[in-house]
């Protein structure tokens, strides 16, 4: 089970431009738990978009996400805002954790900008359960702050809210200069803001190991470009669409390739390459083997060009 069918049980517009969805299993069962800072990848009318979970991840019965409408984007967020209705079912992958809290941190300094508050909210929920010390700075445009009530409630009103950029920057610099040893910094928001916060921290001598950020703009999951693979043993050509692995495409066309992990680690699915340039994305082959270009791991790697030839 790596995908979930989720029923939209509620949808609200807490502030202009943001739609918050509540999702549950259609049969009301418990949902898979998630580590604070995790996101769901949801199929949004033909696009697969990541949305941070803002609910409590411990033994959840529902999930919530908040989606900012990006009007000139490729349409996923617009679909969530304009097309998706309460009572409909969406397909999502299991929650993924890439922005977790650090268990040994003496204190958690959480900095959020705009819609970047979403993963911070789930961090705050866990911090409350485990009585972690936190300090929160949240900057947003006046009247557009999502989850302001949650952030205030979860910090007993201690979160510092900022709607003026210059004031935020000045306050941030002071805050970064004045933290107990062992504090970890977590920042999520627009790319420019993340860069500014991290640069300021580095300038003040923060070590990299204490800095954590999540970028919404980066493509976390790369489905890859489509390509053709020619099987020289039979002379047939198989199309590998974007989002389908070479391994899956070979299996579908009746070619069995031994495999175990399907994650580019175990080395089982290595296949030779007769022509074309592999796009290596695995952890198995050494740098030299990758450079040689005469083999690839079919479960994760693809073609750098429009076609590959394999002696299968």
């Amino acid at each position: 089970m790596t995908t979930l069918e989720l029923l939209v049980t509620a949808a609200v517009h807490p502030v202009p431009g943001i739609r918050s969805l509540t999702l549950a299993a259609p049969d009301g069962r418990d949902l898979p738990g998630f580590v604070p800072g995790s996101h769901l990848v949801i199929e949004c009318g033909g696009r697969s978009n990541a949305y941070s979970l803002t609910s409590d991840g411990t033994a959840p019965t529902s999930y919530t996400v908040s989606v900012l409408e990006v009007p000139d984007g490729s349409g996923g967020s617009r679909w969530v805002h304009r097309e998706l209705r309460v009572g409909e079912v969406v397909t999502a992958r299991l929650p993924r954790s890439l922005f977790p809290p650090v268990a040994r941190a003496a204190k958690h300094l959480l900095v959020a900008g705009g819609i970047g508050v979403t993963p911070i909210v789930s961090h705050l929920r866990a911090a409350r359960t485990w009585r972690r010390e936190t300090e929160v700075h949240y900057v947003f445009r006046e009247g557009r702050g999502a989850h302001v009530d949650d952030v205030l409630a979860l910090t007993d009103g201690a979160a510092e809210l900022h709607t003026d950029r210059a004031e935020f920057c000045a306050r941030l610099e002071k805050a970064l200069a004045d933290q107990p040893l062992g504090t970890h910094l977590y920042v999520c928001g627009p790319a420019a803001m993340i860069d500014h916060v991290l640069d300021t921290a580095r300038g003040l001598g923060w070590p990299e190991s204490r800095l954590h950020c999540e970028r919404f703009g980066l493509d976390a999951l790369d489905p890859g470009d489509p390509f053709d693979v020619t099987l020289t043993a039979t002379g047939t050509t198989v199309r590998v669409p974007s989002g389908t692995s070479l391994l899956e495409a070979l299996e579908t066309s009746g070619v069995d390739v031994p495999n175990l992990c399907r994650q580019g680690v175990c080395g089982e699915c290595r296949i030779p390459v007769a022509a074309g340039t592999p796009l290596h994305r695995d952890l198995f082959l050494t740098e030299e083997e990758k450079a040689a270009g005469d083999a690839l791991m079919a479960c994760v790697s693809r073609s750098a060009g429009p076609s590959l030839e394999v002696p299968l």
Partner: peptide, 20 residues
């Protein structure tokens, strides 16, 4: 042979609900 470094990279990326 890189067995342990590979295992380490694998474990660092391992996600919940997908035990190995």
């Amino acid at each position: 042979e890189g067995v342990i470094t590979r295992a380490h990279e694998f474990l660092k990326r391992l996600q919940p609900h997908q035990p190995y």
